[in-house]
Simulated scan of single mutants.
Amino acid sequence: MPNPRLPKLNRMTLREQVLESLREAVLSGTFRPGDHLAETELAESYGVSRGTVREALRTLQQAGLVTGDSRGKVRVRTLSPGEIGEIFRVRAALETLAVEEIIARGDAAAVAAELHTLLPPAQEDDVDYLRRLELDLAFHQRLCELSGNATLMETWAGLEDRMRVVMFSPGQGDPVDIMNADHHAPLVEAIAAEDPVGARAAFFAHMDEAARRWSA
Rank of each mutant, 00 (worst) to 15 (best):
S21F: 02
M207E: 14
W156N: 00
L57P: 03
E16K: 14
S21P: 00
R131M: 11
T67R: 13
S45L: 08
W156I: 01
V90A: 09
T151A: 02
M12E: 13
G64K: 08
E95T: 06
R75V: 10
G51Q: 12
Q172L: 10
R213Q: 08
P121F: 11
A157E: 04
V76I: 06
M163K: 03
P175H: 12
R75P: 02
M153D: 00
M179T: 05
R213D: 01
D125R: 07
V165L: 06
A109N: 10
Y46F: 15
A205R: 15
L79K: 03
A92C: 02
G34N: 04
V26R: 06
D126L: 14
A157L: 14
G51D: 13
E154N: 02
E154G: 02
H184S: 14
R132L: 11
H36P: 00
R164I: 03
A193D: 12
M1P: 05
A122R: 15
P196Y: 07
L119H: 10
A185Y: 15
E154Y: 00
V76Y: 10
N10R: 09
A108D: 07
V53K: 12
E95R: 07
R89Y: 04
V197T: 15
R5E: 09
E145S: 05
P121M: 10
A56G: 13
